[in-house]
Simulated scan of single mutants.
Amino acid sequence: MSKIWRNIVACTQEEVKATFRELYASVDFGAYIAPQDYFVSYIFKTEEELSKAKETGLLQKINDCHKKLLHEKEYPGEGIKDCTFASQEDCDKEWNGNWYHYYK
């Protein structure tokens, strides 16, 4: 079943990024083990872009879209939760671009 969950998460991330062109990338951790333990983070290129998205309500729109798509794709309910946000700029500065260490 984990392959199905992985595909749902991957498809959801791609749809969200296609819908919100402001996004630079996305990362996810844990989706392959158990749906309740996964999370997705959508990445903006700069801290300034991330801050602007927060101020304008864009982060909430992205989060709502993310959760809606997971629900529509029948991802297990216990795994549907808020996504997180970060900037590539911050990860590069603090962790030399290593997202695993960034979220550890």
Rank of each mutant, 00 (worst) to 15 (best):
I80S: 05
T46S: 13
L58H: 02
H101A: 00
V27W: 15
I43A: 03
V16R: 03
K45R: 13
D64E: 15
W99H: 07
W99E: 03
A25D: 15
Q13D: 04
S26A: 15
G79A: 06
S41T: 15
L70W: 09
L69A: 00
E49M: 12
P76C: 04
L50D: 03
R21M: 05
A10E: 14
W95T: 10
A86N: 10
S26H: 09
F20I: 01
C91P: 04
S41C: 15
Y75L: 06
F29I: 07
E72I: 04
K73M: 12
F29A: 02
E47N: 13
K93G: 00
K93V: 00
N63C: 13
K17H: 05
Y32G: 02
L50V: 01
Y42C: 01
P76R: 09
A18G: 08
W99S: 04
G79M: 09
D82I: 00
K52Y: 09
K93N: 03
R21Y: 07
N98C: 09
H71T: 13
Y42P: 06
K52L: 10
K81A: 09
W95A: 00
D92N: 15
Q60Y: 13
E14P: 02
T12F: 08
A31K: 04
Y103L: 01
K3M: 12
Y102S: 01
T12N: 15
D28W: 12
N98M: 01
S26C: 11
S51H: 12
L70D: 08
E22A: 11
N7R: 14
C83W: 08
H71I: 04
K81Q: 12
G77I: 07
A31P: 01
E47Y: 09
